[in-house]
């Protein structure tokens, strides 16, 4: 009952926030120089005023701004996200077509980084004054500090060009037309490089955070008590220290999860992964307003959903958190 009310409240607020985001984004985009008609005409390399006029009329860009805004907002209310100027498809179709690829990539990276990060972090915390612990932290620091695209390019050079173990780019083997399990394996094979590249950075953060948080928790009195009553070290680590150290990690995981839709632009570009991040970048370059706004909308909605979800998980992890937040 408490949960239901909490969720209802949060959803109500979410709608208002989303509306504000839509309006804000709409004006933000208008401030970028150049309009989609000019860019489309520019790409064609030849143009006359008639052509520009036709395009602007077709896109509704000849209307006053408030009319455009009204059309857009009332469209969204009926789940009509408009038409992509450049790709010549409904925005919703485009986004839904690209969403699975992105979720597969970012979802895999999320699970990988969370699992490996917490694992490596607990190991490092347990081996705090040993060489192995320092080694883990040194690696984490390296991954944390290295730019993602560089790691991606190096991974391609090593695993695709020199070793020829993994495909360099794409989501499946072009022209092979696999079906069933062969297709699944093919996609997994293509997923390894981009997902691990993307996971490295967050894994490093989780590792560092888990370690710090666990070291802090291990100073607490209840740990001393647990030790005094003769519990095994492993049990103390898992039940008493790790569980109490989880809160900051959940916060961070919530943030990462919120970025799952738009957060992989670089990885998707380098690996030619047909996802939303790339779509967003291209839409930005082409001033494809409707498409860009549509992606912003989905990203914002996802962030809000995961924030609510994170709040609920807090309560599961730590029953001391109650009531309205």
């Amino acid at each position: 009952m408490v949960y239901a009310r909490l969720i209802a409240m949060r959803l109500f607020k979410a709608v208002i926030v989303l509306f504000m985001i839509i309006v804000f984004n709409f004006f933000l985009i208008q401030m970028a120089p150049g309009d989609p008609a000019a860019i489309l005409a520019g790409e064609a390399g030849a143009t006359d005023q008639e052509f520009l006029r036709q395009l602007r009329e077709q896109f509704g860009l000849d209307q006053p701004l408030y009319v455009q805004l009204w059309r857009y907002v009332s469209g969204i209310a009926t789940l009509d996200f408009g038409y992509s100027y450049r790709q010549q498809m409904p925005v919703l179709d485009l986004i839904l077509a690209r969403l699975p690829a992105t979720l597969l990539l970012t979802g895999t990276a999320f699970v990988l980084s969370l699992a490996l990060g917490i694992f490596a972090g607990s190991m490092a915390a347990a081996r705090v004054k040993k060489v192995s612990g320092s080694l883990i932290m040194a690696l984490a620091l390296v991954f944390y500090a290295t730019p993602l695209f560089w790691v991606a390019l190096m991974a391609v050079l090593l695993f695709s060009v020199y070793l020829d173990w993994l495909p360099a780019y794409g989501m499946f083997t072009v022209g092979a037309h696999y079906t069933g399990w062969a297709h699944v394996l093919d996609v997994l094979n293509h997923l390894i490089l981009p997902a691990s590249t993307l996971a490295l950075f967050f894994m490093a953060i989780y590792t560092r955070m888990t370690r710090a948080s666990m070291l802090e928790a291990s100073q607490q009195d209840y740990v001393k008590t647990a030790r005094a009553k003769g519990l095994k070290d492993r049990v103390i680590q898992r039940r008493h220290i790790l569980r109490n150290a989880l809160l900051p990690i959940i916060t961070l995981a919530g943030l990462q999860a919120g970025q799952m839709v738009g957060g992989a632009i670089l990885t998707e570009t380098v690996f030619a992964w047909p996802g939303i991040g790339r779509l967003m970048y291209e839409a930005l370059m082409q001033r494809d307003y409707n498409l860009l706004l549509g992606i912003f909308f989905f990203s914002a909605a996802l962030v809000i959903v995961f924030n609510i979800f994170t709040d609920l998980v807090y309560r599961l992890a730590d029953p001391r958190i109650k009531g309205a937040s």
């Binding site: 050079l157 695709s160 495909p167 360099a168 780019y169 072009v174 022209g175």
Partner: peptide, 22 residues
């Protein structure tokens, strides 16, 4: 029998695609 046009947004990746024979 056909032509496949690969879409690879990054210039360095396009070079790699030629180098590794794709």
């Amino acid at each position: 029998d056909g032509v496949n046009w690969h879409i690879i947004p990054d210039g360095a990746s396009r070079a790699v695609a030629y180098e590794n024979g794709t």
